[in-house]
Simulated scan of single mutants.
Amino acid sequence: MESVKRNILLNPGPATTTDSVKYAQVVPDVCPREKEFCDLMQFVSFELTGLVAHPDAYTTVLFGGSGTAAVESVLSSVMTDGVIVIINNGAYGKRMCEIADAYQLDWIEYQSKPDQPIQLDLLESFIQGLPQKVSYLAVVHNETTTGLLNDIEAIGTICLENDIEMMVDAMSSFAAIPIDMNKMNISYLAASSNKNLQGMAGVSFVVAKNTELEKEIATKPTNYYLNLYLQYKYFIETGQMRFTPPVQTIYALKQALIELNDESIKDRYERYSLLWETLISGITRLGLKYLVPKEHHSKIITAIVEPTCKNYDFNTMHDYFYDNGITIYPGKLKDMNSFRVANIGNLTKSDIDLFLSLLEKYLQSIGIETKEENLSSILYETQED
């Protein structure tokens, strides 16, 4: 098998993939309505479910689309008949607010700092102090804006005690950070194929209890393509998606799942964590700071505080790395100047070492002495400081 040019993607997805995942897309043309492809869909759905729940009681419903499609499917299919609390502590919590607003749902925003853990007692007091009964809560597991890991199990306990169904956006935690939907009281989980699964972009999915998916919905549907219940029903009856799926991408997802099973979620997260430790050690040596305290960090993606040096420009730095086969990502916080580096995908320690070496050369090229004691006076302090 001829090797494909390898780029080091340090953006939070799509991630760097193996050649075997890339080549898995090269298959004979097949109609997705044939039994061969239905069997593939069944395999993928079953394997995805088994990563976070028991396949006898839960089902994974697949959609063609980015991860946002899965989140939108849950909000617009399920959460149409009650009050929703949406936790906003980053760009992706904010996105859920925007989706709920677009569908004119009955939603209430709970804001929390993007670089600090959610204060659970305040969240519960907020919920209990509302004049209306809350039916649903939506939260991001790993907030990709900063790398903050929200305590889903504790939030799930609050939901259980207050008779609330919880939806979790697990885009950048699924298949790395262990999740047990039953234990964590997660009613609906949304994720996609192209982050920790190390598959190709184009497939999103929702994992939910069969009993929830089989409910008879009395209200008029508010969506069409993203209707979770109709997609589930069609899959159970036919083994297919209602509409044309991204065929080749699903073949790649099958291969990615095989490779994940070979590595295991435990070992994959350990590998990612070691890469993160290498990254943090390196940027600290260079005098740079990161936003989220270590004890609350997902070790998946890191928001790094930008230098205040007048010669610094993110776009110039991005292009410098891109020319060297590495992709990094801009920050998403208006009041905290940062850029983001992910350590997911088919990466090795040498990839992170290369990034750090190039980062040091870039900083030196714009006039920054890459010694911790010389840099501290020209860098923003974190909000924690």
Rank of each mutant, 00 (worst) to 15 (best):
L148I: 00
A69Q: 00
I368P: 08
E34K: 10
P55G: 14
H297Q: 10
T145F: 01
F63H: 03
K332P: 00
P245H: 10
G129F: 06
V206Q: 11
T382E: 08
T244K: 10
Y322S: 04
K371P: 03
M171H: 08
S135Q: 09
I344C: 11
L197I: 02
S357V: 06
N324Q: 15
N324K: 14
P28D: 13
V206T: 08
Y329L: 01
L230R: 15
S135N: 03
T348L: 14
S45L: 06
E143Q: 09
I164D: 13
A170N: 04
F63A: 09
Q42S: 11
T284F: 09
E216Q: 12
M171S: 08
G93C: 12
E143V: 02
T327R: 11
V206P: 05
A256M: 14
P32T: 02
N196D: 00
K294D: 06
S3H: 10
L48Y: 07
D56N: 15
L260A: 01
K94Y: 03
K183E: 10
P293N: 06
E295Q: 15
F46W: 11
L333A: 05
I155Q: 01
Q240R: 15
G93R: 05
I108H: 09
I283D: 06
M166S: 02
S20D: 14
A208G: 06
T17Y: 04
L120M: 10
V168Y: 01
S135A: 13
N196H: 04
V52Q: 05
V168L: 09
F46M: 11
M166A: 03
E98G: 05
P55C: 14
D313G: 04
F243M: 11
N88V: 07
L291Y: 01
A102R: 15
T80F: 05
F235Q: 13
A69N: 05
N7K: 12
V139A: 04
S377Y: 11
L148V: 02
N227W: 11
I108P: 01
L130H: 04
A69S: 05
I366F: 07
M166K: 00
S357A: 13
Q111V: 08
K371F: 13
E270R: 12
S281Q: 13
P178A: 14
D19N: 15
I250C: 03
N315C: 07
N185P: 06
L51V: 06
I127T: 01
Q132W: 09
V78M: 07
L105C: 12
I84W: 07
Y225I: 05
L51A: 04
I368K: 09
Y269L: 07
V83P: 01
T302E: 12
A91P: 03
I217G: 06
L279G: 05
S192Y: 04
M184N: 13
G325P: 04
T238G: 08
P246W: 04
C31G: 07
G287M: 03
I344S: 10
K334G: 03
D101S: 14
T144H: 07
T348K: 15
A201L: 06
S281F: 12
L358S: 02
V4H: 13
M184S: 12
L149S: 09
C38N: 14
